[in-house]
């Protein structure tokens, strides 16, 4: 699906790989013909486990504004417990897409006016042969299924390149399995 301008906010915990996941999607976006790509992590005094987020802005023209995203089109959450800790949904546009790594089913959530997608990325990634807690490749599979924004084969190739020498095939497999195991709600 083509867009003029799209803003995707990624929420995770320090050490979870939200920035790497956003970087992989940034590269695939650029390769898909979007000259304007900026992935801007917001840095606090974080340590492992603390909530972190990064802003991925993509556009058909150059990105000049590097401030954090305040009105996202899409929000990706690498750990569902973050929903209880911070205002993850802040500014999400009406009809915006919310992708969550969670063991809970769709019915457990009630976010009015959002298109919700869930997958147990943590468990599925383990099934793909990754150690527990490595979810940043898997979440890209769920993102792809929920958004239909980028070519999935292109995302897989970028995952394999990013993780070259670091369980590349397991990471790619995690993304494939998460793609298949993501459930998406209508409006």
């Amino acid at each position: 699906m083509e867009h003029e301008h799209l803003e995707i906010r990624w929420h995770g915990r320090g050490g979870q790989g939200a920035i790497t996941a956003a970087k992989i999607v940034a590269k695939a976006t650029f390769e898909s013909g979007y000259p304007g790509v900026a992935m801007v992590p917001t840095f606090g005094t974080e340590r492992r486990g603390a909530p972190v987020f990064t802003s991925l802005k993509v556009s058909k023209t150059k990105i000049y504004d590097l401030s954090p995203i305040s009105r996202p089109d899409i929000i990706v959450v690498l750990d569902h417990l973050l929903l209880e800790e911070t205002d993850i949904l802040h500014g999400l546009k009406p009809g915006g897409i919310l992708v969550i790594n969670t063991p809970k089913p769709l019915e457990a959530y009630n976010f009015d006016g959002t298109r919700l997608a869930v997958a147990d990325v943590t468990a599925v990634s383990c099934r793909a042969g990754l150690p527990e807690g490595m979810v940043n490749a898997g979440i890209i599979g769920s993102f792809a299924r929920a958004t239909d924004f980028l070519d999935f084969a292109l995302l897989i190739r970028n995952i394999e390149e990013e993780f070259q020498g670091r369980r590349a095939s397991e990471n790619a497999q995690a993304a494939r399995l998460c793609y298949e195991n993501t459930t998406v709600m209508g409006y």
Partner: peptide, 10 residues
């Protein structure tokens, strides 16, 4: 710092 040093762009 950060705005360019840690931001990813093509």
């Amino acid at each position: 710092g950060y705005l360019l040093s840690h931001t990813y762009m093509p």
